[in-house]
Design a protein around this nucleic acid. Sequence first.
DNA 1: GATGAATGAGAGTTCATTCAT
DNA 2: TATGAATGAACTCTCATTCAT
Lengths: 222, 222, 222, 222
Amino acid sequence: MAPNKPDANSKRSPKVTRKPKRSTTGSLNGERARDREVIDVAIQIFWEKGYASASVQDVADALGMLKGSLYYYIDSKESLLDKIFEDSHDDLMKFTKEATDGEGAAVVRLTRFLHDYAMWTLTHLERAGLYSREWRYASDSSRSSLLEQQRYYDRSLRTLISAGQDEGDLDVDVDPRMASLFIWAAFTGIPDWYSPGSKMGPEQVASAYVEFALRACGARHP
Amino acid sequence: MAPNKPDANSKRSPKVTRKPKRSTTGSLNGERARDREVIDVAIQIFWEKGYASASVQDVADALGMLKGSLYYYIDSKESLLDKIFEDSHDDLMKFTKEATDGEGAAVVRLTRFLHDYAMWTLTHLERAGLYSREWRYASDSSRSSLLEQQRYYDRSLRTLISAGQDEGDLDVDVDPRMASLFIWAAFTGIPDWYSPGSKMGPEQVASAYVEFALRACGARHP
Amino acid sequence: MAPNKPDANSKRSPKVTRKPKRSTTGSLNGERARDREVIDVAIQIFWEKGYASASVQDVADALGMLKGSLYYYIDSKESLLDKIFEDSHDDLMKFTKEATDGEGAAVVRLTRFLHDYAMWTLTHLERAGLYSREWRYASDSSRSSLLEQQRYYDRSLRTLISAGQDEGDLDVDVDPRMASLFIWAAFTGIPDWYSPGSKMGPEQVASAYVEFALRACGARHP
Amino acid sequence: MAPNKPDANSKRSPKVTRKPKRSTTGSLNGERARDREVIDVAIQIFWEKGYASASVQDVADALGMLKGSLYYYIDSKESLLDKIFEDSHDDLMKFTKEATDGEGAAVVRLTRFLHDYAMWTLTHLERAGLYSREWRYASDSSRSSLLEQQRYYDRSLRTLISAGQDEGDLDVDVDPRMASLFIWAAFTGIPDWYSPGSKMGPEQVASAYVEFALRACGARHP
DNA sequence: GATGAATGAGAGTTCATTCAT
DNA sequence: TATGAATGAACTCTCATTCAT
């Protein structure tokens, strides 16, 4: 038998991702030619069929390549979803930060935040829709950070409402926690019904939604 | 809810459904002993894992039977989902009808309708959550009638808002179509955050949500 | 958005093995009809093609079932290998224990041990061959216990040789550690050349091998 | 080594090998700059992971090149293994020839042969280990010549033992055929446990192993 | 009513290999 | 010499579904 010694241990090494080093040349961030395309197509497919129902084959078909080839660009179906969410998060984070860290009356910042969020949703329907509808299918690690993020957005919104109340611009009878949940769900629902090429443009919808939200919070004169 | 829009259409088709089995004779309404239990457990499982991710095995496990045995009670996984939705629809339809066909001021009927819907959602969290989150996975025929229903709810809500405006109780500046979508999405989001055993009881949440909705519609004195 | 709440967490639950409960009725140990057959056929296939090269398909083919069906009996290809090794280990352990715990002169127990091991190998050629040739492919957890076992056999053998020297029956010039490795490798090699239906019967081979081993250890009069 | 016996035959066949490419012109013997490096790295990787489990990617990684690039140096994964074995064979052949064709007492030549083989094994652990552990995965044509070779080594060893018996230096009770198999397996097992940097140097191990072998054959005074 | 065994299709993923640049 | 993109076949594994008992 002989005690230990060289063995196939290394095979089960922690899934060493072996993506070609991709020199930093090329478009910014070392992205390969079709990296962007892969993500964009995946967003489309996942949104249309639902992440769980969509197959890697579906995505590959839409890209005009074999499903095996797709793995040159991705590590797994799950990681593809993760990557989609990362991008969305980056966008969202930007104007959430602006709202919370900014100067000026809370109600103004709230208005701005809601408007930005609505506009982002309206101009990135599939991406935004996926984010709120399919975040549950993200990888374990990604999911926990998504939850973290969502809590952060929620807290930011709640804080702004509270501040607005303190500054006398919003009705103090309103429970900021519930108002925040109410508003967030309403906005998050946009991708479920809006379609570009509608009679109403994004601006119109965003403005209307912001007004609904402010009214719900008992804004003096929205 | 929201009318039409992207769905998981393309997937379904292959197997023609046959199997007339089980005549409606037998105990009343053709229900067998554990029919109810099967549905209730399925609701739980589908809600927890998502319909597409949940397996028939998962449901059978929760029922303490083998998956083969489950097919004594169901025709297919899809039909099980359909059946879940039927029940939900029946509930919803009842108070939608009451609101639209009822007498009295529109704003009163609107209030009643929203309150009923909120209460139903709050007391049937999983079922209600499934209805709005997973309707896309219903069978082709079921899905189209679900869309029909959703359009009906939406129209009912819109009509009530319009009527409220006509009767001078709601702000005419509000677009009933968008207000309806806004409110519906907000209410529909309840199962995503509420959990029984919360500090707030269903009544409290329902009342708050109704008030948000009325305020958003510019109600004079909610 | 809404903070946490029910989600698809459960999907990634620690691989809940869901094997049907298999009532303890039937043959001993709750084994299903073809459980034994599956293992025996797998031993054959893995031995012939090598574990890494053999496919689940190959095993299923040999069993006359579809590869999908095979998963009714096994959890994974790896676990099938693990199970094969478990059985081998049980056999080996028995006469290793007898040798180490037994009474009598060490050289007698050594002789007995080697003879038993040779006989077991000769009468379970494929199983024994797999054990020494493919243990590296066992699952992480299984592999570490296999290593443990191998170290145990090695230690047992070494101890017997040492004791034989102490009792004056084996040449003290021999290094027990190396003798043990030498002998073990020699015996382990049997499945690489012996085939049933050879001119020499298992008894003959076993006896010859034991004699080689004792001579190598400098036994006075083997 | 052991003659014939179960092997991974059945698998190979599909792709007809073509590609004559790279004429033997160029640097001496047609070797390109990194040809040697490629082989050495492959030996390492194949030994660590096992040929079947190691991927071309693994080898390319270790070489710091992309797997596509590796094909400039090799024709196929299988041919890479073949080439490794060729080298080993050349080494082995040299001292096998010396032993069989040489002059002097058989037992002396036998001693020399075993010592050389042990030393070669101990100083080329991975290569030697691969040779005995993975020869089954060589290409069809290569495998049959490997079998031929193994039979030749075995026959040489057997012949030396027989001659030693005839010359009165080895016990005639020993069956040369089985002794040969016994000894060969024992020596072949060295790479499974020895590691350079051990307390015992190659010389010590080789000497001990030779002594074991001679004793097993009943040498008068080893 | 329920079991246990099997099916067959398809899922995600890996990998040896090719080839234009 | 080497890269990067793609291929296509095979692989492990899952799952909805069926059916004789």
